[in-house]
Amino acid sequence: QTVTLKAADVHPAGYPNVVAIENLGKKLETATKGKIKLQMFPGGVLGSEKEVVEQTQVGAIQIARISLGVLGPVVPDVNVFNMPFVFRDEAHMRKVIDGPIGEEILTKITNSPARLVALGYMDSGSRSLYTKKPVRKPEDLKGQKIRMMGNPLFVDTMNAMGGNGISMGHTEVFGALQTGVIDGAENNPPTLYTSNQYTTVKYYTQTNHLIIPEIFVMSKVTWDKLSKDEQALVKKFSREAQMEQRGLWDKSVAEYTQKLKAAGIEFINTDTKPFYDATAPVRAKYGAQFADLMKRIADVK
């Protein structure tokens, strides 16, 4: 009997994360001689991430690529990745998630009551500011309304960085930028381009204030139905997918950075130290419970 794994991603077809999971599926199909197949549902056709997670928990969807934020309530440790400037840069982040800390967190998720098996990480780059007026230092953000993801931590981060954090859904951002409800937002270059939001702003300030990896998970219901060998195969190909996605991601960032520059977006390379210092109270307030973990992350060279 063949098994079809339904995989969901809110990212569109062709996106690095989607391609990496599709390739994972192809490898599984070859290795199991067609017993396990994978069917990809990209572009959020199966609903928002929250819905997708719930559907994965009950076993209606088998593989989901999700952001770590959704798991915060069940595995508090993942919130450490949400701390502003917790990683020095992307290379640092990759070292951490590839190493023992990353493995430890995956295991924690798998062993949590979330009914999900954590398979691996995906890179979603680093989030930087884009605005209508140039921003070089925290003072430049004064009075600017910047959209942040809906979590008090992120809103506080923006407030500490000097601006006014406003939380709203991703789909509303474009309209809000156009109409001037907000003065800017923050995300990675590929998203800035593909969401069309780049048409409403002029500057991209590389603060890299948030570097939050994503993960992909399998429904525990499905996992338990697989044989030991099959589980081992899934694990192996997942690790490969994690590495493959990274290469695709770097290519995509380079490509979209080029496109943004061609479209007239000015990239501002700024000293992130003042922003790092300004957000120290945020890390102190929200990060107290994983001070040890943050220390261990900082110690990864």
């Binding site: 609903g47 928002s48 929250k50 819905e51 719930e54 559907q55 009950v58 076993g59 209606a60 219901v221």
Partner: peptide
């Protein structure tokens, strides 16, 4: 449809609620 596809019925409920 869910019964036919052998989906857990919770899946239908989640979509109605959301």
């Amino acid at each position: 449809g869910a019964l036919w596809m052998e989906l857990p019925l919770d899946a239908v409920m989640i979509q109605i609620a959301s």
